[in-house]
Structure formats: C-alpha cells, structure tokens
Amino acid sequence: MQGKIAITPRSLSQAGHPALSNLTDAGFELVYPNPGKTPSETDLLDVIPDCVGWLAGVEPISRKVLDAAGGLRVISRNGSGVDNINLADAEARGIKVERIIGANARSVAELAVALLMAATRHIPWSDAHLRSGDWQRRVGFELKGRTLGVVGCGAIGRQVSEMALGLGMNVIGYDPFPNNDFAPAGFRFGALDDIWRSADAVTFHCPPSDTPILDSGVIEALQPGTIIVNTARAGLIDDIAMLDGLKSGQVGCLATDVFHSEPPEMTPLLAHDRVILMPHAGGLTAESVERATRGAVDNILKVLEQK
C-alpha cells in the first residue's frame, strides 16, 4: 500500500465514483471521514494525519488540520474554488493544492438560468400553494428584452451570458479583469454601478469578498423588484440588507444555492416566501461530477507518482 487518501466531497463519500478505483488500483487506501456529510474539523483530525493525499470538497480546511497533516503531499479539489483552503499555509507545509478549472461551469450556469426563470414565473411558490390545495397565481414577466447583470465573467459567467442572450436578454458583465475577446451581440462589460442601475436581474459568479458586495446601499440603488441569483458564495450578500430589500419590494426574489453553513439554519431570510433555495447543487450533475472527479483523481496521481 502506498498510503491513504481521504475522500471528503459529499457526493463522492456517499455514492462513490468509478474514477476512485484509479487510486486503489495504484495501491492507495481510501478513507472517508464522514460519508455523505461535510466533515467537521474533528472528523478531519481523525484521518488526515495518516493521509498522503486528499480529494477535497468545500469543507473548511483549518490551520490546525494542516498542522496535523504531517505526511500530506496533495490536496486536490473537485472544483475550482480554493477559498476554503489557506494556500499560504498549505505551501509552507509543502502541500500541493490542485484544482479543476471549469469542470462544473456548464452545470452551475444552467442552474443559475433555471433559478432565474423559476423566480420570474414564481415556480416554487406556485407549486407549494397548489400542493396545499390553494389555487393562487402571481404575475410573472418575460425575459426577452430584459437586462441581466453578470457579476464575474469567468467560465461560468460567460456561459450564463450566452444562455441569457439566447433568451433574448441584454447582458451587462462585470469582471475586474475583463476578457475583451468575449463580445457577443447584446453583451457589454460595465461597472458594478452600471449593473445596479440597469439590471432587471443580477447573478453572481465571482470569488468571495472580504465584505458583502450586495449591501444596503447597493440594494437601495437597484431597480425595484430586481431578481438576485447567487450560485457563488453566501458571503457576497448582506443577509440583513437582503431581508429588508425583500420586505420593501426592492428585491423581487432571491434564488440561492449557497449558504454560510451547510445544511443551513432556517433564518427569517431563508424562510421568506420570495426566496428560492437549492442545496448547493450547482455542480451536482452527472456530467459535472464525472469531469471533476476524474480531473481531481488525475491531479492526485500526478503529484503522488512524481519521482
């Protein structure tokens, strides 16, 4: 046996995946700190000290865990985000951090557009009322001719933009490092203030920020009834300001796939009837899991089999 490899993404630790056999075929033993659930720091401390590799999900990786990981050589994310890992701490301990760029871009983009359409036509609200025997209807609106603001125009944001353009929308994109080669008809780059003033809906596809991007001042600047879609990070939005925006009608709907903790506590914001919830499933499609898992496994073997 060449050593142990921890598997912590919830989808993989519960259901497994054929690509994981590439690790066992190479002589590694797979260990699962908390199958099907996000492992706690205690769960990680129980297994990581004995591991040479780690196929990691979005669980927080603390300095205490890294300090205990004396033999760990690689952390391989099954996605592109690494904000759950202190890269400097990992590098200082000689731990290589690998990630998969763009593996889940299509699946997250499709969910963002699905959430946008669910919000415009009140689909979850209508379904819930009908199931309870209550026939009610809310007036929706068509997306053609409307403006979508896309905050973050990397692999996901660009695909969302293309889908929105296909629906007849106009798109304003913001990115601190705009790729000016991306210039389809109906799309333009703009400043954040431009998005806040002009957009009928805003979707987030950017890294986390030190403070919320969508705070009370920004919400006041939005067009009344703006739809907000967040498949990026919960910390991008000020929860108190968002709840106030929903109550006042300044925000028409919040559709979110991300939370401060998972599973989340049902706060007044999340319980609001104009909030649509998804259980962080943006990358959870068969195709995305296939791409991300095989890529993450390949990255582990690339590092561990180096001579």
Results as ranks from 00 to 15, higher is better:
residue 85 I to G: 01
residue 82 V to G: 07
residue 76 S to Y: 04
residue 103 A to V: 06
residue 66 L to H: 07
residue 70 G to S: 11
residue 82 V to Q: 11
residue 110 E to W: 06
residue 109 A to K: 05
residue 125 W to H: 13
residue 83 D to N: 14
residue 114 A to H: 02
residue 100 I to N: 10
residue 69 A to T: 04
residue 128 A to P: 04
residue 72 L to W: 01
residue 71 G to C: 03
residue 120 T to Q: 10
residue 90 A to N: 02
residue 119 A to R: 08
residue 138 R to T: 11
residue 111 L to W: 06
residue 143 L to K: 07
residue 102 G to N: 10
residue 78 N to G: 12
residue 134 D to G: 04
residue 72 L to A: 03
residue 137 R to G: 05
residue 123 I to A: 03
residue 99 R to T: 03
residue 112 A to L: 03
residue 110 E to C: 05
residue 102 G to I: 00
residue 66 L to K: 02
residue 100 I to T: 12
residue 92 A to K: 13
residue 108 V to G: 02
residue 110 E to M: 01
residue 113 V to E: 09
residue 124 P to I: 05
residue 97 V to L: 03
residue 126 S to D: 09
residue 104 N to W: 00
residue 124 P to M: 09
residue 108 V to D: 00
residue 139 V to Q: 14
residue 86 N to G: 08
residue 75 I to T: 09
residue 83 D to K: 06
residue 92 A to H: 08
residue 135 W to L: 09
residue 110 E to T: 07
residue 115 L to F: 06
residue 98 E to D: 02
residue 95 I to R: 02
residue 74 V to H: 07
residue 78 N to S: 15
residue 96 K to L: 12
residue 76 S to T: 05
residue 116 L to P: 09
residue 79 G to Q: 07
residue 100 I to D: 04
residue 85 I to H: 07
residue 143 L to W: 05
residue 83 D to G: 04
residue 127 D to W: 03
residue 103 A to R: 02
residue 105 A to N: 10
residue 67 D to N: 12
residue 128 A to Y: 05
residue 102 G to W: 06
residue 132 S to G: 08
residue 68 A to Q: 08
residue 95 I to T: 00
residue 119 A to T: 08
residue 117 M to D: 00
residue 127 D to G: 04
residue 79 G to Y: 02
residue 136 Q to V: 13
residue 83 D to A: 11
residue 107 S to Y: 03
residue 108 V to L: 12
residue 140 G to S: 12
residue 99 R to I: 01
residue 74 V to A: 10
residue 129 H to T: 14
residue 115 L to K: 04
residue 134 D to L: 13
residue 70 G to V: 09
residue 92 A to C: 07
residue 69 A to N: 00
residue 137 R to K: 15
residue 127 D to K: 10
residue 69 A to S: 11
residue 143 L to M: 15
residue 139 V to H: 13
residue 112 A to M: 09
residue 74 V to P: 10
residue 73 R to Q: 15
residue 91 E to K: 15
residue 80 S to Y: 05
residue 91 E to P: 08
residue 78 N to P: 02
residue 79 G to E: 05
residue 77 R to L: 14
residue 131 R to T: 01
residue 134 D to M: 10
residue 132 S to R: 13
residue 108 V to S: 00
residue 112 A to K: 07
residue 99 R to A: 11
residue 132 S to I: 04
residue 92 A to G: 09
residue 140 G to P: 11
residue 93 R to W: 00
residue 74 V to C: 15
residue 109 A to P: 05
residue 122 H to S: 13
residue 137 R to H: 13
residue 97 V to H: 04
residue 121 R to K: 15
residue 73 R to D: 06
residue 100 I to Y: 00
residue 85 I to N: 10
residue 129 H to R: 13
residue 73 R to L: 12
residue 134 D to S: 12
residue 116 L to N: 06
residue 128 A to H: 12
residue 136 Q to P: 02
residue 104 N to G: 09
residue 93 R to C: 07
residue 80 S to A: 15
residue 91 E to I: 10
residue 72 L to Y: 06
residue 92 A to F: 06
residue 106 R to M: 09
residue 127 D to I: 15
residue 121 R to T: 08
residue 77 R to C: 07
residue 88 A to L: 10
residue 78 N to M: 13
residue 83 D to L: 08
residue 135 W to E: 08
residue 66 L to D: 01
residue 82 V to T: 14
residue 111 L to R: 01
residue 89 D to F: 00
residue 128 A to F: 11
residue 114 A to C: 07
residue 96 K to Q: 14
residue 142 E to H: 06
